[in-house]
Amino acid sequence: MTLPTISPAKAHELVRQGAHLIDIRSADEFARSHAKAAENRPLDTLGPVTEPGPVVFLCRSGMRTTVNSPRLAALREGEAYCLEGGLDAWRAAGYPVVEDSSAPLEIMRQVQIAAGLLILAGVFLGFLVAPAWFALSAFVGAGLTFAGVTGWCGMASLLSLMPWNRAAA
């Protein structure tokens, strides 16, 4: 069974009537921006949702909730929906969104930026300095392949230790 999708207007009306808005994105994504009424419950740790009344699940674009709709439906016995278009649609409809531009970029975006820069550096240095620099691009490509196959990303683990990704004491 999958959950029905509803428009931002319908979701907003349900929230005004007491429905729970549950954002299934990771904590770092949620910290950067989220619907004002949303509660963060990351998909990878989400357990049964037992709150009374309707529940509306959302992610950034609606894709994650749509793909995981059968799993979300299994975690919820009562009335539940997926927000069509996710947070992007919620924002576009003019509903309140909490933004924190001082929060670090999501770890996966940091990985994409770092990997892209390392691959470009390997290619440029390989052409301009010495062909051995092409190995840098190959190393990063192998790391990304390993991350995709195993679900563990060494670069993400390393980036999460960086000072800008740590909470201030």
Rank of each mutant, 00 (worst) to 15 (best):
M1P: 14
L3F: 08
L3W: 06
T5I: 03
S7E: 05
A9R: 15
A9F: 13
H12P: 00
E13R: 14
Q17C: 10
Q17A: 15
G18Y: 08
H20E: 00
H20G: 00
L21H: 07
L21S: 04
D23L: 05
I24G: 01
R25M: 03
R25F: 04
S26Y: 03
A27V: 12
E29Q: 12
F30V: 03
A38K: 01
E39Q: 14
D44Q: 12
T45C: 00
L46W: 03
G47N: 02
T50P: 01
P52E: 08
P52R: 11
P52C: 01
G53V: 04
V55R: 00
V56K: 00
V56Q: 05
V56P: 00
V56A: 00
F57C: 02
L58Q: 04
C59H: 06
S61W: 11
R64D: 01
T65M: 12
N68W: 08
S69N: 12
P70K: 12
P70R: 13
A73Q: 11
L75Y: 09
L75I: 07
L75N: 02
R76K: 14
E79P: 01
E79H: 08
E79M: 01
E79G: 01
E79K: 13
A80Y: 02
L83H: 05
E84M: 14
G85Y: 10
G86S: 11
G86P: 04
G86C: 09
W90D: 00
W90K: 07
R91K: 15
P96M: 09
P96V: 08
P96N: 09
V97G: 03
V98I: 15
D100P: 05
D100N: 15
S101I: 12
S102D: 05
P104Y: 13
P104W: 12
E106F: 04
E106P: 14
I107C: 05
M108T: 08
M108I: 10
M108N: 02
R109L: 01
V111F: 07
Q112F: 08
I113L: 12
I113T: 10
A114D: 01
G116I: 05
L117V: 13
L118T: 10
L120W: 11
G122S: 06
G122I: 02
V123D: 00
L125Q: 01
F127W: 15
L128A: 15
V129F: 03
V129C: 06
A130R: 06
A130Y: 11
P131L: 06
P131H: 07
P131V: 02
A132P: 00
A135N: 04
L136K: 06
L136F: 11
S137P: 03
A138T: 07
A138L: 11
F139T: 07
V140D: 02
V140C: 06
G141E: 06
G143N: 04
L144P: 00
F146K: 03
F146Y: 15
A147V: 11
W152A: 11
W152F: 15
C153D: 06
G154F: 14
A156R: 09
A156W: 11
S157M: 15
S160A: 15
S160T: 13
L161E: 08
L161D: 04
M162Y: 14
W164K: 13
W164T: 09
R166F: 04
A168L: 14
A168S: 13
A168H: 14
A168V: 12
A169M: 08
A169L: 11
